[in-house]
Simulated scan of single mutants.
Amino acid sequence: MRSYFLIGFFLCFITGSLFSQEPNHLKFKVNKGAPQFASENEQFKFGLGGRVYLDAAAYFDDKTDLGSGSEMRDARICFKAEVLKKWNAKINVGFAGGEVSLKDIYLQYNISTNSYVRGGNLLEPFGIEQTESSKTTKFMHVASTVEAFRPGRNLGVSYVNWGKKRYWEIGLFGSDINNTTEGDEGYGLTSRFAYALLNSNAIFHLGASGTYRTADSNGFADDGTENAKSIRYRSRAATHIERRRFIDAEIENAESQFKLGLEMIAAKGPISLQGEYMEASVNRKLLNGNFSAHGWYAQFGFLLKGGDYKYKIKSARLSKPNPKSLEFLIRYNKTDLNNSNIGIMGGKQQDVSLGFTWYVNYNVLMKFNFSNVDLDENALNEKENFNMIQTRLQFSF
């Protein structure tokens, strides 16, 4: 119910601002494939965006019978508005799999040219790939470590500030917009700080993120007592078409969790390096029974064509390569959800991926990924090793 209320509120904001302008005084243009309207005095702007991803995957040497196939990985429509150069609103709705899902939906107030506060359904500021648009992530699927530990989108409010070399965001968040479980929902405080020691001819960026979150309610038993709360970490095997999670740790009797993330970006000319380390600890009601897990990835990029890598301090990450660029990628990931001290063995995954991305133009790109995945004896179907080839045709505006 609250999801429909949120959409309705932001639609009223956008359409109310739109119809406050006289139609014959609106200017129209297309910017990088996206249609935009603006008043003559530039005090009001309204734009449309969207994306479609068509994916295919083939799996080999699999002990588990994996389902090779294809899917429309993502399909979205996005509405954006700017009013008086101080207020921004965004509604981003997905339709992948034939289901409606709410993505970024927020209202933003611009405090200055380098700071703002926003509230709505937001990505929590934790690391690089967690906060990066899927339009610009290097591989078709985020690293397993990121999928396992990322906090995702939640209802909340955040403050963002950046300078020539630094970036900082902090936010207070409630639960998932689709959470309908009875009882008190959890809350979280999340922050990310990054500092770019170099960000011109060469790029060198270090950062850290942290999040503290209480566990969501798990409903009530028939006698009215509250069910034990739980926290879960899990991840797919470097792919989305095969939906099963091969590593999965559910921690029962959980009270709260703390997650730490460390990040690094380095680039010089057409060569880039990026890596993240994440760890999570869960505080439980049981004595001497706290859970901990960790993971990391490192990736290398080389622009075979298209110039040099560039950096955006406003989001503290590498910029999208230029149109007509050709990029070669390598990534190694290791995620360990085993904790033998308390007998929760969620499995360990190691994977190596190779990728090629062709940025056909600003709106179209094509991806080719090869991955080898190695799982330990605590994974879904015990120890196994398999390979996959994946491709994507992506259109966005």
Rank of each mutant, 00 (worst) to 15 (best):
E40A: 10
A38E: 13
I203K: 12
L18P: 07
E382W: 08
K164P: 09
Y109T: 01
S319G: 12
G307F: 15
V83E: 15
D61T: 00
K320C: 11
F139N: 01
K310C: 12
Y277L: 03
G188D: 11
S319Y: 00
V364P: 12
V157I: 14
F139V: 00
E185F: 05
I77G: 14
L318F: 14
K324W: 12
N378L: 02
V100R: 02
S134T: 08
S39L: 02
V146P: 08
H25W: 01
S158Y: 05
K135V: 08
L84G: 03
G171F: 08
Y116W: 14
N253M: 01
H294Q: 13
D216A: 04
T137K: 00
F258A: 12
I344M: 03
Y106Q: 06
S315L: 07
R73E: 05
I342N: 11
F126C: 02
N227A: 04
K135C: 06
E22N: 05
K305Q: 09
G188I: 07
P323F: 02
S39N: 10
F19W: 10
E132F: 07
D104M: 10
Q299V: 07
F5M: 10
R236E: 12
L189Q: 15
N201P: 08
N290D: 15
D216V: 00
S133M: 02
P321W: 04
S235I: 03
A316Y: 05
Y4P: 13
W168F: 13
I241M: 05
N199S: 05
F397Q: 03
N333A: 10
Q130D: 09
S3K: 15
I105Q: 12
N339I: 00
R153L: 02
S70K: 10
S39M: 03
S112M: 04
A202I: 14
C12H: 09
G120K: 11
R243W: 03
L286D: 15
R153V: 07
V373E: 00
R213Y: 07
V83Y: 15
E129T: 04
R232I: 05
I14K: 14
S230A: 09
E377T: 07
F173W: 14
L286F: 07
Y59T: 02
S175K: 13
N369G: 04
V373G: 02
G97P: 10
N110G: 07
K90L: 12
